[in-house]
Design a protein around this nucleic acid. Structure first.
Length: 475
DNA sequence: AGCACA
């Protein structure tokens, strides 16, 4: 008794409203069907369909309250119930006075599409590929691309039909997108844009349009509220295909031609047979021979050149082929030559393909040229001093690591030191065990297999292979 | 079959 009166939402009569609440509608009832139903009683100014958990409720808003009253009154006394597609629908005044249509621009057809490119390699999709894809549906006027951080994105598949999930949508439930690669694609009219949207939304960019190594890139398309994009320059970010005389942004000019342009004008580093290795947190001297040993685990090394840059040491390592370099890069990137996060390698592809080694010495070597004059007076003689403000000098076998303070002040090569974040143990105590002091190059606990997984060849307990002191290639 | 949802 009390429970009935405390449930006002179920009361039989409600205060009139020009908004009517409809329930028991057929699945996916359209706006047109709602207008058709209300039209005999007045002007329907707004509707909202597919409401509620079952999406079988709707609202109709009339221009005038009397029109809503007319409709309710009619069906209240009619022997024929209100019907949509032969299904009886139940009407009542809504408890709201107007329909709040949270219709976003994404639902309103326009001539500009908002395209989101999904996939691990979304950033590598160039604006030219997008242009090609969308040009299939009509003249593409303009394209702008941008990247948006979107936090974690969770895809809702609960309303997607099963066939959609089975048709090979590349979107994985485990894939969390931290950034969104988006583009605005402008057509001349909303009809063309709608055609492109209908055909492409949820589909993947054809593989043959993408660089070979790219994973699937899926397009999610909605309408944008834009009608005319503002493109100031032709660039890797934006294009205006209606104005070929638009100035080209200087950033779009890459004379080297070495880089392929990815999404958002991002430079994509091309693979190379020459690796550029930078050494972070270089507490211990890394010599050319050490580098040779580390990198030769993946294939023969043709040339190595070391040089100082940004207060750190970098090296170019040349393999005979790109494949070997790729494998070496993948295996070594981020790993430390020495235990404890010391001498962490950062590897990128060099733009070089063939190093020019003039002379064999402690900083450069050409292993392919036996006639190149080496300089035995330099080669393998002195330990390599650690670059930077440290004034510590190494003399013969009198190796000692720099103190912690010196290390702290040692300039890094430009990236954030991540050894600590990677769980590396703190720097070794200053009183280091010196049982290996006969090897000035190598700190204790040097190069265990786990520091560079799966590669350390011919590791001996005495630490350094013979080649480190006198490589077999040298003459 | 019973009031939207960012």
């Amino acid at each position: 008794m009390a429970s009935v009166s405390s449930q006002p939402q179920f009361r039989y009569t409600q205060p009139p409203s020009k908004v009517l609440h409809l329930r028991n509608l057929p699945w996916e009832c359209t706006e047109e069907e709602l207008i058709e139903l209300g039209k005999p009683f007045g002007k329907v100014v707004n509707t909202k369909c597919n409401v509620g958990a079952n999406r079988n409720q709707a609202f109709i808003e009339f221009a005038d309250l009397n029109q809503a009253i007319a409709m309710i009154s009619y069906y209240a006394s009619s022997s024929e119930p209100a019907q949509v597609r032969g299904k009886t629908v139940y009407l009542q005044y809504s408890n709201r006075q107007e329909i709040v249509n949270n219709k976003t621009s994404a639902d309103v057809a326009g001539n500009v599409l908002l395209v989101t490119i999904e996939g691990a390699d979304a950033r590598l999709v160039s604006i030219d590929v997008l242009h090609l894809v969308f040009s299939a549906f009509g003249f593409v006027h303009k394209i702008t691309t941008f990247e948006k951080t979107a936090g974690f994105q969770v895809y809702k598949f609960n309303s997607a039909p099963l066939w959609f999930l089975l048709m090979g949508s590349s979107t994985s439930k485990h894939e969390f997108v931290l950034y969104l690669c988006q583009a605005l694609v402008q057509f001349s009219d909303s009809e063309t844009a709608s055609a492109a949207k209908n055909a492409l939304d949820g589909r993947s960019i054809p593989r043959y349009l993408l660089p070979e190594h790219l994973g699937p890139c899926t397009l999610r398309i909605t309408f944008s509220a834009h009608t005319d994009l503002s493109v100031k320059f032709q660039s890797h970010r934006s294009r205006d295909y209606t104005n070929p005389y638009l100035p080209v942004a200087s950033s779009a000019i890459d004379g080297s031609g070495q880089f392929s342009m990815g999404f958002d004008g991002r430079k994509v580093e091309p693979e190379s047979n020459v690796l550029l290795a930078s050494i972070e947190n270089m507490q211990y001297a890394v010599t050319l021979d050490v580098l040779h040993m580390v990198f030769s685990a993946f294939g023969p090394i043709q040339k190595i050149a070391m040089f100082d840059k940004n207060g750190g040491v970098q090296a170019l390592i040349q393999y005979p082929d790109v494949q070997t370099a790729v494998v070496a890069k993948e295996a070594l990137e981020g790993h430390c030559i020495y235990d404890g996060g010391f001498c962490k390698l950062h590897i990128s592809y060099s733009r070089h393909t063939d190093l020019s080694i003039k002379v064999n010495n402690d900083r450069s070597r050409d292993y392919t040229s036996p006639v190149l004059s080496s300089q035995p007076s330099v080669l393998g003689q002195q330990p390599v001093p650690i670059p930077g403000p440290s004034t510590h000098q190494f003399e013969g076998a009198q190796y000692a690591p720099p103190s912690d303070q010196q290390v702290m002040h040692q300039p890094s090569a430009g990236w954030a030191t991540s050894a600590a974040a990677a769980g590396a143990p703190p720097p070794p105590p200053q009183s280091m065990p010196m049982q290996q002091h006969n090897h000035p190059y190598m700190p204790p606990g040097t190069m265990p297999p786990q520091s560079v997984p799966g590669m350390m060849p011919m590791q001996t307990q005495t630490g350094l292979p013979q080649s480190a002191a006198m490589p077999p290639y040298s003459h």
